[in-house]
Structures are given as C-alpha cells and as structure tokens.
C-alpha cells in the first residue's frame, strides 16, 4: 500500500517535471529572442533588458534552467501582456469555470454511460445493440467542436431553446455540458460494455449464478462492481484528453474558461499566458489522476491489502 502510494506520487512528480522541462526547452529553442517573445510586441528596450536579466539569458543554459525552476516554484510565470496581469493569476481566475464544465460533463456522462454500457453488455450484438454500438462509435469519433456547433445551430438558432453562449444562466450550461458529455458517454459506455461483458463470462460469476444469485445482483453487485476498478483507472487516464475537449468546446460556446483564454493568447502571441495554461492544466490533470489512483485501493482489496502490485 505504501509502496503503491509512493510509486504513484513519484510518477506524478516525474510527469510534472517533464512538462516543465519541455516548456523550458521549447522557449529556448524557438526562433528569435525568448525575452522578446515573453515581453510582447509593445515592450520597450528597457523592459526587454529587465526580462533578459531576470531570466538570466546572459548566463549559461543550466543557470537559466535553475532560474526558470525557481521562478516556477514561486508561482512566477511572467506577465500576460494582453491582460497586463501575472499570467498565473489570469489562468487561475478562469480555471474554476473550466473545472465546473468538466465536472458537470463527467457526472452526466457517468449517469448515462453506466446503465447504457451495462445494457449493451447484456444485449451484445443484438440488432438494437448494434445500432447503439454504431452510435457510440460515431459519438467517440465526431469532432467535439462540430458537435457543439451542431447543437448550437439546432437548439439556439433554429429552435431557440437555449442561449447560444455564455454563462449567464443555468440554461446556458446545458449545451456545453451536453457537447462535452457526448464524447465521454460514448467512450465510457463502450468501456463499461467491454468490462462488464468480460466479467459476466468470468468463472466467479458462473459460480455465483450456480448458487442461485439473482440476475440483477449478478450484474450490478458482481460484474459492475468488479468492472468499476479498471473503469475508474481508465477514467483517470482519460481526464487529460477530456480537458482538451472541454477547452475546444468552451470556444464554441464562448464559455469564460481556459479555452477562450488560450485562443486569445494565440491571437496575440501571449506566450506567458499559454505557458501558464500548459502548466496549470498539466498540474490539474496529473493531480486528478493521482487522486483517482489513490482512491483505487478503496475499491480493490488486493491493492489495499498489499498482495498484488498494480502495473
């Protein structure tokens, strides 16, 4: 149990370290003067010189890396010149909106996908299931921004039921959440189908059936309960991918989260802002995955009681 936790923690720290180092290398590798890139087009010569000194650009690369890490540790990722504020603060002020959207979408996805996946597993390859199966494949392969635009066109323009953008009222939440959830429902339900299908054919289930356990109990208390372990792990690893989708969908709906921020940063070449977004979303994704992995022993007694190590 203790080795499990420390292993997970180590992996998370390593991932963050790799991210940070990649960002450092990228900025140093980019064509042109990093100081110029980070200061923005409106900076004066004095500003540039100040940045050069603070980044240690005249020092050897290793010293620069040290300075870079120290700045990061202090939460100093530079100043966003399009917002005229510390980049980290700008990103943190938008982060709750993104998390809000992601959490609602994942909740909706779980509520829909688990019963759907169980149904698919039990009716595997019947005509109806085949139809639903094809739909889930479609759901996981359509571009998410396109789904968003379609929903928007249909329910905000053609049938104006929901507002087309923003975060002004609860009805404004419906379309963005649905858009993000569609992909997740497709992914999770297919995962549930596969796992529950495997568990329904497992020896322990046949044995439980032989001792007269009812079909509902077999499905939920046994097959689904055993499936929940791999499903939760996969959800953890998928969270990063989901964050990508959320960002794109935010742009469609003008959601005041990280997505619109990142688009604006791209337009204005606001590197400190993009850098801050990269770091914050990475820490978030890694943190969520760590959290889920630490919940894992609660679900699996084999890990909790330290018999099996989880790869």
């Amino acid at each position: 149990m203790l080795t499990y936790v420390s292993k997970r923690l180590g992996q998370s720290l390593l991932t963050i370290f790799l991210t940070v180092s990649t960002v450092f290398v990228l900025i140093r590798m980019a064509p042109g003067d990093p100081a110029y890139a980070l200061a923005g087009p409106l900076a004066s010569t004095g500003d540039l010189e100040k940045i050069r000194i603070s980044m240690g650009l005249n020092e050897p690369l290793l010293t620069q890396y040290g300075i870079f890490l120290k700045d990061l540790g202090a939460g100093n990722i530079g100043k966003s010149y399009s917002f005229q504020a510390p980049a980290l603060e700008v990103v943190m002020s938008r982060l709750p909106n993104t998390i809000f959207l992601a959490v609602l979408a994942i909740l909706l996805a779980i509520v829909v996908a688990i019963p759907l996946g169980v149904w698919m597993a039990k009716r595997a390859d019947t005509k109806r299931e085949l139809g639903v199966n094809v739909l889930t494949i479609a759901g996981q392969s359509m571009p998410d921004f396109w789904i968003g635009i379609m929903l928007l066109t249909l329910f905000a323009v053609v049938f104006p039921i929901f507002p087309s953008s923003g975060f002004t009222s609860w009805s404004g939440v419906v379309l963005p959440v649905t858009t993000v959830a569609i992909l997740q429902i497709a992914l999770v339900s297919r995962m549930v189908r596969r796992e529950v299908g495997t568990n329904m054919a497992a020896p322990y289930l046949t044995v439980a059936r032989a001792r007269g356990t009812g079909e509902q109990k077999l499905t939920w208390a046994y097959a689904m309960r055993n499936s929940s372990i791999p499903i939760l792990t996969t959800l953890g690893t998928r969270f990063a991918g989901m964050l990508n989708g959320v960002v794109v969908v935010e742009v469609v709906f003008n959601w005041p989260g990280l997505g619109s921020l990142v688009v604006r940063a791209l337009e204005t070449r606001d590197y400190p802002l993009i850098q801050a977004t990269v770091l914050v979303t990475s820490v978030l994704a890694v943190g969520v995955q760590l959290l889920i992995d630490l919940c894992y022993p609660l679900l699996d007694p084999r890990v909790r009681l330290g018999k099996v190590s989880v790869a």
């Binding site: 960002v247 990269v278 979303t281 978030l284 994704a285 890694v286």
Partner: peptide, 22 residues
C-alpha cells in the same frame, strides 16, 4: 515512463504552445 507521462497530460495546450512559438 515517457508514455505514461505523455498520456496523462492535456497535450493540446502544449501543442498550441509549440505552434505559437514555431
């Protein structure tokens, strides 16, 4: 470790940074 690390990151942001820089 590299595979694990990359899979657990929201890579889109990093890609945007690369495109913005290069």
């Amino acid at each position: 470790r590299l595979i694990e690390a990359q899979l657990s990151l929201p890579l889109l942001m990093m890609l945007l940074l690369v495109v913005a820089l290069f």
